[in-house]
Amino acid sequence: MPKSKSSQLEPPAPQAPAVRRWFPDIIKWVRVGLAGLAFLGFSVGAALIAVLVMPWWWLLHARKPRFERAGACQWWIKAGCTLLHDYMRWCGLINFDPRLVDRTVPSGGFVIVANHPTLVDVCAVAGIYGKLTCVAKTALFKSPFIGIIIRACDYLDGGAGDPFSGGLVVRQGVERVTNGMPVLIFPEGTRSPEGGLRAFKRGAFEIACRANVPVLPVLITCDPPALGKGRPWYDIPRHVSQFKVTPLAPLAPVDFGRNPVTMSGACEDLFRRRLGLAPPITAGSRANA
């Protein structure tokens, strides 16, 4: 009893300030090393899943329906991504636990739309929802270990920037969501600029409107910023980054007249408001799509 009382009186211990004062450089390099291990762990983890898990997955699920089979493989992605975030949290790199986020999702298929401040956003969202598919570059499908896994998970082939890539992604996306398989898309097309948001492309909303399934907007914030576009991975902020994922209320295509451009513009406005950003100068014009 006295023990719990004393711990109640104490303010929550800050992350070792005294140590930082004495050994700032050592702490910094240790953290860079730990972050490097996270990258290494990602590759090693992917290789282990590809070599050790995939053969069993194939034996167990080869005869099952396509999307059920993919879902079984996506479970491993979820486990791996959760483990990566656990590691980063334990090391004091990025503070996020996918288990603590509300998992309420629309029934059936839906499109998850998120902003993209960091390199670990896919892992965060996959760690929360588990069953989902993402878009990956064609080159990634050919990479030795990751390629095996994302093919097994039935990820969408994003093409190599050819004139039809967007259309092909929309077709693949519609096929998945109509079969009850959620699709995650970052409508900015790449990582967000630091503290900002790029104009949304309409592909994600095109999938939702054509298949008439809801869009689940997921707001991601990382403060102080880390692992962003244009910032080297070893440029780690002095303080532990607080990473937050906030699912917002789902949007129904019928509320936007099933018009992807209107829906995209409205969704971008929603993200801008929630991020405290000014509206863009040219909102939702077709040329931006």
Binding site: F164, G167, R171, R202, E206, A289
Partner: peptide, 27 residues
């Protein structure tokens, strides 16, 4: 810049063209 169409439109157009004219356009 011209009509402001994008890669989603491109595929739709390619499919319509192959249907109408019987020419194959590979992605």
């Amino acid at each position: 810049a011209g009509l402001g169409l994008d890669s989603i439109d491109a595929l739709e157009l390619a499919l319509a063209i192959s249907k109408r004219y019987g020419v194959k356009i590979k992605s």
